[in-house]
Each structure stands twice: as C-alpha cells, then as structure tokens.
C-alpha cells in the first residue's frame, strides 16, 4: 500500500480538486489586494484631476507665473514659482543635512561598525525613522530654531525655512541611511577581499570599490529621501511660518511657503476658503503637480535600484 496521501496511479495525477480550488481562491485574494492599490492610485489622480482642471479653467494661466507677487490664494494670487521655490529651499536644506549624515551613517554601519554595534544602532535608526513628523515640527520650533538657527544667524525670525529644512533633514536621514546601507551591504564580500588582497586599505576599499559598486543604490536613497522631503508637510506647516500666503522668498532665514504647506493651509481652514472662485480648487492643482514630481522621482530611483540588482 502507498503511504497516506501519496499518489498511487494515473487517476491521481489531477491532484485534489479541493486543494486546487483553495489555491485559486488564495490567488484571487492577493490579486484583489494588488488591483485595489491600483484602483486607489487611479482614484487619487482622477479626484485631483477634476478639481485641478476646474481650477485651471477659472484662473488666467499666465497668472500662474508671476514671480515676486507671491502666493495668496484668498486674494486670487496663485504664483506657482513662489511655492515651488519654498519647496526647493526647504528640501534642499533637508538634503544638505540628510545626504552627509545619512550616507555617513550608512557607510559606518555597513563597513566600519562591529556586528554588535550595528545590532544596537540599526534599531535606533529605525526608531528615528518612526518619529511622527509633527514631533519633529515642534522640535524645530522649540529647539532647532532657537538653539541652532538663531545662534548662528541672530537675525533669523522665530519661524523660518532654515529650521524647517533642518528638521526635514533629520526626518529623512534614517530613510537615506537605511536604503544606502542596504545597497552597500549588498556589495559582495568577494569585492572587498579582492581589494584588500591588492593591498588596499579600508578607506580605499570603501571609497574606491564598495561605494562605486553601490552607487546606484546610493543615488536611489538620495532620490527617495528627496521625494520624501518634497512631500513632507507637517514640519513645514509648523515651523516654516507661512500661514495662508507668502511672498516669493529665497532667503532660508525668512518664513516661506512650500507646496505641501500651502495645501494644508487651504485644507484645514476650509471654512475660510471662499475668496475667489478656484481658491479651494488650487489645492488640487498643487496636489497634482506634487504628485507628478514625486512620481517622476520615484520612477527614476526605481531605475537606479534595478540597475544595482542587475549588476550582481
């Protein structure tokens, strides 16, 4: 006799019909989850698109590009460069903080830290990644701006883009560090051995072999960090200091308005959002622009990551 459940003849080659049905059901469940996420993405774009088009039909298109007039939606002044510049300044400062800190931490963790040290530091990094941005926003106004920004630049006001940018940088540092560290660690040990075998020192091996081999993943970490910085809202809303509207600002020591903060200002004060026609809808247009910027950045970083995978 055959063992329990073991196939005994050609009759059994079809296997158990119930088990196959179960397999199909499970596949449907996962398929459903995948389809659901696609549907949600389409819905987001669709909901943005309708209102954004309405907004575009209400305003003079040339009025979307009048630098120096600023962003005052309630007065019907919609200068896109103002909020794009605000976003650039804040996320630029964020990157200036996060790129060296994040990459430095990644290189340390992957190349220099002893296993024991890494076992302690890695979870701390992950906790830092989980800090709600509202907490960092308050950290910016209660500590970063008075103790750091105003110490270095006494002329800085209580709210400014510099403080917000530094906080954004702290926010995205763990993300940059963790993605970059993964790509550094995925560089095969054989390459390090080859380098040491040639008589290279640790820093030469790290900088000339490991980092170049992981460059795609490092780029991806920076781009992911940047898109997270561009999308960050809470810190900017709290610390950058522009409620409602803002003039066109480049100086990071002054308050400024980013795209996300502009949207929040409109969204949370929806009872006040009357103003001119299209004021409320401008929120959706900005949202759409933001959506596409981050989409492009994510696609680019996805490309980089794929190049890393192909190489080994």
């Amino acid at each position: 006799m055959a063992a329990i459940g073991a196939p005994t003849g050609a009759m059994d080659l079809r296997g158990d019909a119930r088990r196959r049905r179960k397999e199909t059901r499970i596949r449907r469940v996962f398929q459903g989850a995948a389809v659901f996420s696609v549907i949600v993405s389409v819905l987001i774009v669709a909901s943005l698109l309708g209102r954004a088009l309405f907004f575009l039909s209400k305003v003079d298109l040339s009025a979307l590009w009048i630098p120096s007039r600023g962003w005052y939606p309630r007065r019907g002044v919609f200068d896109i460069p103002t909020i794009v510049m605000g976003t650039l300044v804040v996320s630029g400062i964020g990157m200036l903080v996060a790129a060296p800190l994040g990459l430095g931490a990644a290189i340390y963790l992957s190349e220099y830290a002893k296993p024991r040290v890494r076992r302690i530091l890695k979870p701390i990094l992950e906790i830092l990644a989980g800090v709600p941005s509202v907490v960092l926003g308050f950290f910016a106004i209660t500590w970063i701006i008075p103790n750091v920004v105003q110490t270095i630049w006494p002329e800085a006001g209580f709210f400014n883009m510099m403080g917000a940018g530094i906080a954004v940088g702290i926010l995205i540092t763990p993300l940059v560090a963790s993605v970059a560290e993964d790509s550094l660690r995925s560089v095969p040990g054989a390459l390090r051995e080859a380098s040491y075998g040639m008589g290279a020192r640790k820093r030469t091996t790290t900088m000339k072999i490991v980092v170049p081999a992981a460059v795609s993943g490092i780029m991806a970490s920076l781009i992911l960090g940047l898109s997270r910085a561009i999308g960050e809202t809470m810190i900017v809303a709290i610390a950058a200091g522009a409620s409602g509207g803002s003039a066109f600002k480049i100086n990071p020591l002054e308050p400024g308005q980013t795209m996300t903060a502009a949207m929040t200002a409109l969204a949370i004060g929806s009872d006040q959002v009357r103003g001119q026609e299209g004021t409320f809808e401008s929120l959706f247009f900005v949202g759409l622009v933001l959506f596409f910027i981050t989409l492009v950045l994510n696609i680019v970083s996805e490309r980089f990551v794929r190049r890393v995978r192909k190489k080994y």
Binding site: A190, L191, A194, G197, M198, G199, I209
Partner: peptide, 20 residues
C-alpha cells in the same frame, strides 16, 4: 598587513573582478 598584501598577492577561487 597592507604592506604584506602588496608583496603577496592573491587570486581567489571565484573570479572577482571589480565592476569597473
């Protein structure tokens, strides 16, 4: 050890050229 390895080179079991 770095000086040692400059004089005593090594070829490994699996070819491991740098991705350069």
């Amino acid at each position: 050890p770095v000086e040692v390895r400059r004089r005593i080179g090594m070829v490994f079991q699996k070819p491991n050229p740098f991705p350069k």
